[in-house]
């Protein structure tokens, strides 16, 4: 393992410089790059990347990486926000993951995106451990933005329960995932169950899935990884969205990965003053819960669940 400073954020005034590190494994070949936390609340993404650094370090020391394999892991580029409990850049609330491919002569987060991208580009495969704008819990999955630039089915090799494809929206064109693809890296976003809390089991499953992907590429020898699951391919458009009508306290009765029957209660909305039930949120179809909103209180007209029918 080789630890290198990719770049340093000059965090003046009155904060000390912050280094962003890359952990390199194997040869100089640009086989796989894994990006961990970019936003300040992506603790699970940082933890998952850190666990991957640990596992790769052991595998490398045991001579289990192939001679042609070169890997970069960047556990965190969001320290400046993370240390002051901000999801986005604290000064102007801009999101580095809406600034790719970045611009070295531009504004602060454009420059940071440019430096991250400089380190990450040129790899054949890219994995971004990322989070959704809505706080919630997911069934673990690989998500691909369907740009037509890559073979999405390689995402099956992670052996996670789901491979979800989605059409890019205009606002997606400035994400790492989209730009990595444009720069000819085959890119997958990996979602674990959590974002701003540590879920050790889910992180280990994610690390196993990345190592399994490497093994499928013949980049890993003599592994004893769990086999993974049969991956179901999904188009995001086909997920069934369940909304709440009433506002109040959210009491979830089902979580990600749970099976649910048509008309079964998935959550309750409780009156915040009397604890009376204001709404029983029922599933409109049989299926498996793919996404469950994580919140204590909810306004009306909001996504609470997405279900795989």
């Amino acid at each position: 393992m080789r630890k290198e400073t990719l770049f340093t954020i000059d965090a003046l005034p009155y904060r000390q410089p912050i280094s962003v590190y890359g952990y390199y494994f194997g040869t100089d070949a640009k086989t796989l790059a894994v990006m961990g936390a970019i936003r300040g609340d992506e603790f699970q993404q940082m933890y998952t990347a850190a666990r991957l650094v640990n596992r790769l370090s052991h595998l490398e020391s045991q001579g289990r990486l192939s001679e042609s394999c070169g890997i970069l892991v960047v556990p965190c580029a969001g320290q400046f926000s993370m240390n002051v409990s901000h999801r986005f850049w604290p000064l102007d609330n801009t999101d580095i993951n809406r600034m790719f491919p970045g611009y070295e002569a531009g504004e602060t987060t454009q420059r940071l995106a440019a430096r991250i991208f400089e380190a990450l580009k040129g790899y054949h495969w890219g994995v971004h451990l990322t989070s959704l704008y809505l706080p919630g819990d997911f069934a673990p999955h690989i998500r691909v933005m369907d740009t037509g630039l890559q073979k999405n089915d390689k995402g099956l090799d992670f052996g996670l329960p789901y491979l979800v494809s989605r059409d890019p929206h205009p606002y997606d064109t400035t994400t790492l995932n989209y730009n990595w693809q444009v720069w000819e890296t085959n890119t997958f976003s990996l979602y674990t169950r959590a974002t701003d809390s540590i879920d050790e089991q889910s992180a280990d499953e994610a690390v196993d899935s990345i190592l399994r992907f490497l093994a499928k590429l013949d980049m890993l020898r003599e592994h004893d990884l769990p086999p993974g699951t049969q991956t179901q391919k999904l188009d995001e458009k086909n997920l069934v969205t369940i909304h709440n009508k009433a506002a109040g306290i959210l009491l979830r009765r089902r979580g990600p990965g749970d099976r649910i029957s048509r008309n079964e209660t998935a959550a309750l909305i409780i009156d915040p003053y009397t604890s009376e039930i204001r709404e029983e949120i029922r599933s409109p179809s049989d299926g498996v819960i793919f996404f469950a909103r994580h919140a204590q209180i909810l306004p009306s007209h909001t996504v609470v669940f997405r279900v795989i029918p």
Partner: peptide, 11 residues
């Protein structure tokens, strides 16, 4: 308009 979580309407 929409109902906010605790006893308020966003209008």
């Amino acid at each position: 308009s929409a109902e906010l979580s605790v006893g308020e309407t966003l209008m």
